[in-house]
Nucleic acid binder design. Structure first.
Length: 160
DNA sequence: GCCAACGTTGGC
DNA sequence: GCCAACGTTGGC
């Protein structure tokens, strides 16, 4: 089974790549995904050892800042059923069925030169990349091996 | 801060 | 099941 590659968006004001690096074991559960398409990818397709580009969104200079690997495959997201939690899902809680899942990721590399969105747009290897398309809101996106490699080379990976 | 694109909700 | 209204995302 070939390794999968992903792009995972995060708002650095909320949780940045540096925040991930500061976590114990540089590992965290990827909280807050409340979209079924993204959920399905994490539940069905994310495999241990897959690699993910960590992308900062909703800032002046969005782009890829680091690389992480999947260290734990999909498991129930208990936060969805914790009243008062930021990611509490009242509707699901009433129904008694928790549809949400988490994966754990560990930071492995920093991009010495973060690859900004504007730089990505100029890269021929990324001309079909999902994240660059208009209105691509999916917070967890598949990335091809070629796209992953192109960004890693451009960004100069530095092992953490 | 604006607003286009998208996903979800809810009336019918 | 359709679709308008709404809330959110996220680039700019």
């Amino acid at each position: 089974m070939a390794k999968n590659y992903w792009l995972m968006k995060t708002e650095p004001e909320v949780f940045s790549f540096d925040d991930l690096v500061r976590e114990r074991g540089r590992t965290t559960c990827w909280e807050g995904v409340r979209n079924y398409q993204a959920r399905n990818l994490m539940r069905d397709t994310f495999k241990k050892g897959d690699q993910a580009l960590i992308y900062h969104s909703n800032i002046a200079d969005p782009g890829v800042f680091g690389v992480a690997e999947v260290v734990k495959e999909g498991y129930p997201d208990k936060y969805a059923f914790e009243q008062g939690n930021k990611y509490f899902d009242a509707k699901a809680f009433e129904k008694g069925i928790n549809p949400w899942i988490l994966v754990d990721v560990r930071a492995t590399h920093r991009l010495e030169n973060p690859v900004t969105r504007s730089a990505m747009k100029e890269m021929a290897a990324l001309k079909n990349m999902m994240v660059l398309k208009r209105g691509a809101r999916l917070s967890v996106q598949p990335v091809t091996a070629a796209e992953f490699k192109a960004i890693c080379q451009r960004g100069k990976l530095k092992k953490i």
